[in-house]
Design a protein around this nucleic acid. Structure first.
Length: 489
RNA sequence: GGCCCCGUCGUCUAGCGGCCUAGGACUCUGGCUUCUCAAGUCAGCUACGAGGGUUCGAAUCCCUUCGGGGCUACCA
């Protein structure tokens, strides 16, 4: 069992960006980050791009961008540097080769000349015989003659790690003591035939060289842990210097499969476009597999850092629930100051072409935000909600027209016009006062009926932000013009 | 198939042998409030996968079983 008593905590997030970072990745990053911050340790960010066929520069840049956007700042890694760099594995190839050569020299590893077809045949036979699948050790102890023969056949070799008999025992911070019998951990490949390193070599070497103390990662890597530990051994690392492992439970989609496009949006970029706040995403994700232990659900980033411990992380998988994310996002939006809200809202309004961004428009938006703040769950809803303020060619929505063309409705509009015209101080208080006394008190109409008609005429829809505030924001001239034109419908 | 992980309301969770006729949140349903929509507020629905033990006592400990998931690559 390994310990890291007395050492400074260093946690790493090491994704392999074969696509946009998804919800599961971010949950892991969040826990890594929170743990580092909680312990006053170092948060290291490393890119695992040993699979050059699947990792692209675009994905790497997107990953960096996403972490920044979420506020998961790192102390060591791309852009910020650090004394253990470089932090892109593709820039560390010579390091891995050197270690592989050392393992070879130590006889911890050996060259394997088996072809993919041969290996596949072995696996099939094993499966058919109900045996544990895995490399059969064919090339473990080749004689010089055999090696010469394989070479003369033109075969290329991979470097394979020799797994000794026995078992690997380690204490997973979340799952407790884990024991893996090496009978089920076959000799594994460290270096491809073309000389490039595999994940199993690179992660282990980097975690040791970069002095990582805690590895919090997805549970899909649980069964590969004995292989990483085997590499530590071959590197000559002292038991006490092994990193501590904690395997996080999965984030599942609603259909109980790992989250993907099919069962919910998995890409963080999608949530960003929809108008989810980073703080909401982090708050929600923190609750997926972890809880502070009490009934608190609204947690700030700062509080998360204070409260987060690995011991409180669950071992069972969690299903992603969009509704709850939305609820939390709504809460976070409501908690924003108007200036903060304005900063978040503007890009969405401009992108939707509701406004072009002039000072006048921005001032109007700012004045209108308070009345929609508690009405939205995502920032992307803002344009539709404020659109009525900026429409140059205002028309009443077709589904609403029918409700204001009868004579009773026309009477309401005529009376409204008459009452509103004389108002000199165009405030929602005055607007409400005159309309209420005229339409409700004098005409005896039900508020929902009377105001509904005015609502349609002024905002174009049966659903809008609060009426009197909306009319105030519209301005007297526009409001009266709209009512007048509704009279002609 | 083999190895491994996991199993409390629909969902996220609290619970770590008696405080549990199982608490909170989201969802859903109904009420209140109300100019629409929201927000707010009140109430309600609904869970310890199953079967055996251990114990005075089990959601909590043990075993079996069933169910879900992962790994089983010259992916990570």
């Amino acid at each position: 069992m390994s310990t890291t008593v007395g050492k400074q905590v260093k946690v790493r997030f090491a994704p392999s960006p074969t696509g946009d970072l998804h919800v599961g990745n971010i949950r892991t990053a969040l826990f890594d980050w929170a743990y580092a911050r909680h312990t006053g340790g170092v948060f290291l960010f490393r890119i695992e791009d040993t699979d050059t066929t699947r990792v692209t520069d675009d994905y790497i840049n997107a990953a960096i961008d996403t972490l920044k956007w979420l506020g998961l700042n790192w102390d060591e890694g791309p852009e910020v540097g650090g004394e253990n760099g470089p932090y892109l594995q593709s820039q560390r190839l010579d390091i891995y080769s050197a270690w592989a050569a050392k393992f070879l020299a130590q006889k911890d590893a050996y060259h394997c000349y088996c072809t993919p077809q041969e290996l596949e045949a072995v696996r099939e036979a094993q499966r058919a015989a109900n045996q544990a699948p895995g490399y059969n050790g064919h090339c473990r102890d080749l004689t010089l003659d055999q090696i010469a023969e394989y070479k003369s056949e033109g075969r290329s070799a991979v470097v394979r790690m020799r797994m000794p008999e026995g078992n690997t025992v380690f204490n997973d911070l979340i799952r407790g003591e884990m024991v893996f019998d090496h009978k089920f951990v076959p000799d594994f490949v460290l270096v491809r035939a073309d000389g490039s390193p595999l994940y199993t070599l690179a992660v282990a070497v980097d975690d040791i060289l970069m002095e990582v103390t805690h590895i919090l990662r997805g549970e899909d890597l649980l069964s590969s842990t004995p292989r990483q530990i085997r590499v530590y051994q071959a590197m000559g690392v002292a038991l006490d210097d092994y990193p501590v492992f904690a395997h996080l439970p999965f984030v599942m989609g609603t259909d109980n499969a790992k989250l993907s496009k099919r069962n919910g949006e998995a890409s963080i970029a999608w949530y960003r476009d929809k108008g989810f706040l980073p703080e909401a995403i982090c708050n929600y994700l923190a609750l997926l597999g972890w809880s502070p232990g009490d009934d608190r659900e609204n947690i700030t980033m700062k509080e998360l850092c204070e409260l987060f411990t690995v011991e409180k992380v669950n071992s069972s998988p969690a299903r992603f629930d969009m509704k709850k994310l939305e609820a939390i996002n709504g809460d976070k939006i409501r908690a924003l100051t108007i200036d903060e809200f304005l900063t978040w809202a503007l890009p969405f309004l401009i992108k939707a072409q509701t406004i072009s961004g002039t000072p006048d428009e921005i001032a109007l938006v700012k004045a209108a935000l308070p009345i929609i703040q508690e009405r939205i769950v995502m920032l992307s809803e803002i344009p539709a909600m404020l659109n009525f303020l900026f429409m140059r060619d205002f028309v009443v929505g077709p589904e609403s027209v029918g409700k204001i063309i009868d004579t009773a409705a026309k009477d309401v509009l005529k009376r409204s016009l008459k009452e509103l015209e004389p108002i000199s101080d165009w405030s929602h208080i005055n607007i409400e006062a005159v309309l209420r006394s005229a339409l409700i008190d004098e005409m005896g109409l039900k508020p929902r009926i009377a105001f509904g008609v005015v609502r349609i005429a002024t905002t174009g829809s049966t659903i809008s932000p609060p009426l009197f505030e909306s009319i105030e924001l519209l301005g007297k001239a526009t409001a009266l013009a709209r009512i007048t034109s509704a009279l002609t419908l």
